[in-house]
Design a protein around this nucleic acid. Structure first.
Length: 313
DNA sequence: ACTAGCCCCTGGGAGC
DNA sequence: TGCTCCCAGGGGCTAG
């Protein structure tokens, strides 16, 4: 599932090929076959029409990551004047892949990559949104489970995007310190540390895989209460968090599930998991010999070693 | 201003 | 082998 390293990898890939492109046209079937028709989402037909009117003819000027969100900044020119600057905000949720390549419309209802290769991976064939670009490539959103959200805001009114507005500091924010991390997590009081790490309004970018890995490596039981973890422990948590995220970025993200980068390729971080998805296996920590357990914390699966991960309560 | 819990979705794995 | 059932889980939303 796309978390910070995966979204980062996607964004870096997209930057290479779509910046400067004009969006010639867009297509979507999100609004045709989904029940989830909130007002402000392209899954709603009226909103999609509004969205289409804003993006067609616009130029992609830059792309950035905001937590797990992808921000595509666009502008339209008219007679040499910049009329509007808008930002498309995409969240890939569980199974979204934002990719770019040459695609063609097939069977009047699906899109498929033209060239053989990673883009033709079966996981990449659930295409529900297509931006046709001026270089004849397509920017597509494949999303098997259709959880992804796509919205548009005036760039200078991005603070009206509730989630973006309430996002905590990014886990890789250069200004973030161990002390600040402690203060933020400590505020979560009786919330299990596992849930606190997943809370995007506390720290942005961490999801289920990385929270499990961080807690395993720092020897903290996922049900430990946020406020009970001693301040001095946060130097280690901070360092481990950064190292794990950076290591995953280095390996192109985690494709244990179905993540694919902007070119349809898998990442390799799944080969570095110590604990996530290893229920019943022996704890890989040296001389530990514990058996990895899986529990559900606030509706999220949490993998940990009951032998060496300490419960602070 | 909080948090807990439901809901969105569908391929794939488990179980029989 | 083929069927059914249920799980994966981020975050929006609502009720308390």
């Amino acid at each position: 599932m796309p978390e910070l390293p995966e979204v980062h990898t996607t964004v870096e890939g997209l930057k290479k090929v779509v910046i400067g492109q004009i969006i010639k046209d867009i297509w979507s079937d999100f609004h045709l076959n989904t029940k989830h028709k909130g007002k402000d989402t392209i899954k709603n037909k009226k909103y999609f029409d509004y969205f289409k009117q804003l993006v067609v003819g616009a130029k992609i000027i830059s792309i950035e990551r905001g937590g797990k969100n992808i921000l595509i900044h666009i502008k339209k020119n008219h007679q040499g004047l910049t009329l509007e600057k808008y930002t498309i905000v995409i969240h890939m949720k569980m199974t979204g892949h934002l990719m770019v390549g040459e695609y063609q419309f097939r069977n009047s209802k699906t899109w498929i990559a033209v060239k053989e290769g990673p883009l033709q991976d079966s996981y990449n064939q659930f295409i529900h949104l297509v931006f046709s670009l001026s270089n004849n490539k397509h920017l597509v959103l494949s999303d098997m489970r259709k959880f992804a959200s796509v919205v548009i805001f005036e760039t200078n009114k991005l603070n009206e995007h509730k989630t973006l507005a309430t996002l905590g500091p990014d886990a890789l924010d250069k200004k973030l310190t161990a002390k600040r991390l402690f203060e933020i997590i400590h505020q979560k009081k009786k919330m299990p540390i596992k849930s606190a790490l997943l809370d995007q309004s506390a720290i942005a970018g961490i999801g289920n895989i990385y929270s499990d890995e961080i807690l395993w490596q720092t020897n903290i039981h996922p049900l430990s209460l946020a406020e009970k973890i001693p301040e001095k422990k946060f130097k280690e948590i901070f360092k481990v968090m950064r190292n794990i995220l950076k290591l995953s970025i280095k390996h192109g993200g985690d494709s244990k599930s179905d993540y694919r980068n902007a070119f349809g390729e898998k990442g390799n971080f799944q080969n570095f998991h110590q604990v996530y998805g290893r229920k019943g296996e022996e704890c890989p920590k040296k001389n530990c010999l514990g058996i990895i357990k899986r529990i559900v914390v606030k509706g999220r699966s949490s993998h940990f070693c009951p032998k060496h991960q300490i419960l602070y309560k």
